[in-house]
Computed example of a mutant assay.
Amino acid sequence: MQSVIDAHIHLDMYTEPEQQRILQELNASNVVALICVSNHLKSAGKLLDLSKKDTRVKPAIGYHPEQELPTEEEFLGLWKWMDQKSKHFVAIGEVGLPYYMRKDNPEVNLTAYVELLEKFIMKAAQLDKPIVLHAVYEDAPIVCDLLEKHQVSKAHFHWFKGDEQTVERMIKNGYYISITPDCLYEAEIQKLIQSYPLEQMMIETDGPWPFEREFQGRLTHPHMLHRIVEKIATLKKMNEGQVYQKLLMNTKQFYNLTD
């Protein structure tokens, strides 16, 4: 096992004992850092506290789209934190559009979420921070439009799923994707791995989200990243060591990690 970075994990959503277990086991799993995305201001605060105790925790600040829109007070509080504490966060995220929530409730006002996302994209440009995106299927072209409008190229589409035309557009624009453990059993993700350049790829767990097959009933843990590397190397017919090195370098460079 070579060194890896979890490019997308919700560390604050684990229980405290689970958090401690994961952090204690990182060295044994050769996991050198965790890009920890937040769901809202309270979430970002928890991650900031964790990062002060363990420098391998690299927090991002954002507002997850698969929930009700923030109140004006919540929004202003988040914005104030972004300006005041930007040096403590490696990225803006997780932000995006509420695809799954709209599937359950078609009455959700997409326009309001698009307007909120545009503000986050503008803030990422202002602060010169990478942006972590939740944008899948037909939502992805909307997000690409916004990124292009504001000339933001340092964009990370986590657990991406979408059509070939959007994939080609994302590759051309230099956007990154990250691959989850479901690549071991999902044909859709395996096809994406084969078509997307390794130079624009990272790996993630999206923990504590659970996975199936060999991971059924198991705590989602960053040690699962090594199985993703194995699968990527197999699908791309590449040397596993080279895949490890490239994924690590991609993530360090994208998130400006120097330690």
Results as ranks from 00 to 15, higher is better:
I22V: 09
A91W: 10
M224I: 11
T111W: 09
K252M: 11
S86Q: 15
E168Q: 15
Y244C: 05
E230R: 14
L219Q: 06
D49V: 05
I35F: 00
A140C: 08
L257C: 08
M224H: 15
N109Q: 13
V167A: 10
L127Q: 01
F89G: 01
G217K: 01
Q2H: 14
V243E: 08
Y113V: 08
L257Q: 07
S178R: 08
G217Y: 02
Q190I: 05
K246E: 13
Y99P: 03
R21E: 13
E240L: 10
P208F: 02
H223I: 12
F160W: 14
K149V: 06
V95D: 02
A125C: 14
F157H: 09
K154N: 14
F160M: 05
I35V: 13
V57M: 02
L133A: 03
E212Q: 08
F254R: 06
F211N: 13
L41C: 07
R21N: 09
T220F: 03
A233D: 05
V167T: 04
Q165N: 14
V4K: 13
P98I: 05
I189S: 08
E68P: 09
I203M: 10
I193M: 00
I171Q: 07
M170V: 07
D6H: 06
H221Y: 05
S3Y: 06
K58A: 01
D259G: 12
T15R: 00
W209Y: 07
M238C: 09
L219P: 09
N27F: 05
I203Q: 04
R169E: 07
Y137M: 06
K191T: 14
K191M: 01
A233P: 09
K80C: 02
L192K: 10
G174T: 08
D139M: 15
H8S: 09
L198R: 07
P197F: 12
Y63P: 09
K85D: 12
L147K: 05
A44P: 00
D12Q: 04
V37P: 03
